[in-house]
Amino acid sequence: MGTSVIISAVADERDAEQILKLQYLCYQSEAELYDDYTIEPLTQSLADLTAELGRGHALVARLGDEVVGSVRATVDENGTAHIGKLIVHPRMRRHGLGGRLLTAVETHLAASLDAKRFRLFTGHRNETNLRLYRSRGYATVSKEQSTPKLTLITLEKEAEDYATSA
C-alpha cells in the first residue's frame, strides 16, 4: 500500500463521519453472527457518535487520510476504563492493527487518566475478539444474556503493570 498506518492519540468530531461509516461496515459481520441488524453500532446516528466522542476518548488509525480503525473509551470514578467499539476495516484485519489499537488505548488511559483496570465486552460467538482479548491478558468476569441469541461476555484486566511498562 505504500503508506504506513498511523494511530492518532485523539479522534474528534472531524473524524466522526468516517468513524461512523467504518463502524457500520465493521459491525455487519457481528450482526450476521447473531442475525440482529438492530444492534446499536448499526443504528447509532452521527449526532450520537459526535456526542460520544466529546464525552470520552477515541483513537483512530489512519492510512493516509482514510480512517481504517478506531477504538473508544471512558474512565469511571473508580478508575475502570471501559473500552468499546474497537473496529478495523475488513481489508486491514489480520495484520495486528486491532492489537495495536488496544495497546494504544490502554497506554493512553493508564498514562493520562490513571486507569486502574480495563474492561470490555464482546458477543459470545465472536471467537476472533475473544482470542485477541485473552491473548492480551483479559479474563472473563461475567456473562449476561442480552437477547435470546446474544450473550455478552465482559472481560477485564488490571492496569497496574501498565504504569511501569508504558
Results as ranks from 00 to 15, higher is better:
Thr103Gln: 03
Asn126Trp: 04
Lys149Val: 10
Leu152Glu: 05
Val60Gly: 00
Met92Trp: 02
Leu63Ile: 07
Gln18His: 05
Arg117Leu: 01
Glu158Cys: 01
Glu30Phe: 01
Ser165Gln: 13
Arg134Gly: 03
Lys143Ser: 14
Glu66Thr: 14
Leu20His: 05
Leu113Glu: 14
Ser146Phe: 13
Thr140Ser: 13
Val5Asp: 09
Thr38His: 11
Ser146Met: 12
Cys26Leu: 09
Leu109Thr: 02
Val71Ile: 15
Gly54Arg: 09
Val5Gln: 05
Thr3Phe: 15
Glu144Val: 15
Val5Lys: 08
Arg14Gly: 00
Ala73Met: 03
Asp65Phe: 09
Leu102Lys: 03
Val67Thr: 06
Ala31Ile: 01
Gln28Tyr: 00
Glu40Met: 13
Arg72Val: 04
Val67Arg: 11
Met1Ile: 01
Leu59Ser: 03
Ala51His: 14
Pro90Lys: 05
Glu156Gly: 04
Arg55Asp: 15
Val68Gln: 03
Ser45Ile: 08
Val60Thr: 14
Thr80Pro: 00
Ala139Trp: 01
Leu33Val: 08
Met1Ser: 13
Leu20Phe: 11
Leu53Trp: 12
Arg136Phe: 11
Asp114Trp: 09
Ser29Ile: 11
Gly123Ala: 10
Leu120Met: 14
Thr140Met: 12
Phe121Glu: 08
Gly123Tyr: 06
Arg136Ala: 09
Pro148Lys: 08
Arg72Cys: 08
Ala115Met: 03
Ser165Lys: 07
Lys116Asn: 01
Pro90Ile: 00
Asp114His: 06
Pro148Arg: 08
Glu13Val: 07
Thr147Gln: 12
Ala115Glu: 10
Leu150Phe: 03
Tyr27Val: 02
Phe118Arg: 02
Leu46Gln: 09
His124Thr: 10
Asp36Cys: 04
Lys143Trp: 11
Thr164Trp: 01
Ile39Cys: 10
Leu155Arg: 07
Ala110Asp: 07
Leu97Phe: 05
Val68Ser: 05
His82Ala: 05
Ala81Tyr: 11
Ser146Val: 15
Arg94Lys: 15
